[in-house]
């Protein structure tokens, strides 16, 4: 047990170290010299040598890459992710300010999608190839194939502009959260529905389901006690992976609904080439994603009695 935990921690460290290196290194993808490009884009004309040198000195860009990276890395342990080029505000402050909105949206979307997808997936599998199954499969297909920003506008058009039921943009109240959560939750619900259905169909083929039937267990219990419990095991992993999907979607949905959050912060920073902010947001989302997946693996161990030690990778 301890050994498995140690080896898991080892690979986790390697992954997070890699993530931080790539995150920091990303800015060097900038065509030409970053300082020069930033100043050029900011002013619209070519900056002078001295201006570039000053900018570099101010933001520590004059050091060799390795030193810069190490300084940035050690800063992280002190809770310092640098300061924004544009507003000179500490990145940590900005992140803390915007993070709660994004977390709120992500959790709401998760809740919407799970509440929808698990029952629909189960019913679909149990009534395989009936009209119920076909309808929900078709709905799921639409959900997967719809661009979420487009769905967002359709919802705004219908609920905010035509019916006037919800505000079109902004954040703060439950009404503000409703449309973004549905927009983001729909795609996720569609994916999870299909996975629940597939997993249920597989489990319903298992011999032990027939064993339960042959015992005289009622069909409802066969489905919900014997099949669903086992079908949920892979679903948990997939839902964990879908956290990445939620983070992706949050970026776009926040822009559509003009919600202040990590997504809007990131997009604005990317356009302004405000690299400290970009690095901060990328690092936070990636680390959050990695840690979620580790937690999901732990949940997996709890759900599946066959995995006694941490050997499931």
């Amino acid at each position: 047990m301890l050994r498995a935990l140690l080896s898991r921690l080892g690979s986790l460290t390697v992954v997070i170290a890699g993530v931080s290196l790539i995150t920091y290194g990303l800015i060097y993808l900038t065509p030409g010299d970053p300082a020069h490009t930033i100043l050029h884009e900011r002013r619209g004309s070519s900056p002078s040598e001295s201006e570039v040198a000053m900018f570099r000195a101010e933001h520590g860009l004059d050091e060799p890459f390795v030193i810069q990276y190490i300084e940035w890395l050690t800063g992280i342990f002190r809770g310092d992710l640098g300061t924004s080029y544009a507003s000179s505000e500490p990145v940590t402050t900005l992140l803390l300010q915007y993070l709660p909105n994004t977390v709120e949206l992500a959790l709401a979307a998760m809740a919407v999608s799970l509440a929808l997808s698990i029952p629909v997936g189960v019913v679909s599998a149990v009534h395989r190839d009936t009209w119920i199954d076909r309808t929900s499969q078709f709905a799921a297909l639409l959900g997967i194939s719809m661009p979420n920003f487009w769905l967002g506008y359709l919802l705004i058009l219908l609920f905010a502009l035509h019916l006037g039921l919800t505000p079109t943009s902004g954040s703060g109240t439950l009404a503000h959260l409703l449309l973004p959560a549905i927009t983001l939750g729909t795609g996720l619900a569609a994916i999870v529905t299909r996975i629940v259905r597939t997993s249920m169909l597989e489990v319903l083929e298992e011999e032990y389901v027939d064993t339960a039937r042959s015992k005289g267990v009622s069909e409802r219990l066969v489905v919900y006690k014997h099949a669903l419990r086992n079908a949920l095991i892979p679903v948990v992993t997939i839902v964990g992976l879908q956290f990445g999907f939620v983070l992706n979607g949050a970026v776009v949905v926040e822009v559509v609904f003009q919600r202040p959050g990590l997504g809007t912060l990131l997009v604005d920073a990317v356009f302004a080439r405000d690299y400290p902010i970009v690095q901060g947001v990328v690092l936070v989302t990636a680390v959050a994603f990695v840690i979620t997946n580790q937690l999901v693996d732990l949940a997996y161990v709890a759900l599946d009695p066959r995995i006694e030690r941490g050997e499931h990778a």
Partner: peptide, 10 residues
Amino acid sequence: DPETTLNPAY
């Protein structure tokens, strides 16, 4: 097949 006839979760 006794490998598959018992429910692994219980």
